[in-house]
Amino acid sequence: MLKHLLKNVAGGPVTIQGPAASTEAVEELAARLQKLTHTRLGKGLVFREIDAGSCNGCELEIHALNNIVYDLERFGFRFAASPRHADVMMVTGPVAKNMKEALFRTWDAAPNPKWVVAVGDCACGTGVFAGSYACVGKVADVVPVDLHIKGCPPRPIDLLAGLIALIESTVAPAEKKAS
């Protein structure tokens, strides 16, 4: 194992270069740009991922963000186990009605200020499950959404571009009006 580690140290980084912030995301966020919350948060954001009825495809790509190639933590992002420690809720899925209450409560448990990122076509309301008796339809119907990242599933690089926009903009969370 030592040999393996030495080889890794000598081999240089495997991470790819971080993408530029997605223009779409910047636009969406700029629309809500208000005062400097950065000063309060510093350069780090803590995420809490919530699967609200995903097919698990989006989760695989969110997982990939943590791998050695994308290495999310170098941008100051980190996933937390508890919503109490989180700044950003990353939500996937069309919001299965069975998950609606759990999604709301998890979001509610996170301290203010907080942001919500809807990840994937399902979460954005354009996925294949929308319209069923068992689905609410989109995340924004349950909790206020600050940023939509489309794709089925969005690639890690797309996620990264959206999230970098989130931290580069100094945003105020979307208006708090939840059902």
Binding site: M99, V128, S132, Y133, A134, C135
Partner: peptide, 24 residues
């Protein structure tokens, strides 16, 4: 918890759309 009503969405779907659901 993540029941999405897949069987109901498949019912009446075109083969093409049903294939998209099956893939997910």
């Amino acid at each position: 918890w993540v029941h999405k009503g897949v069987d109901s969405l498949l019912k009446g779907a075109t083969i093409e759309n049903a294939a998209k659901l099956a893939a997910r």
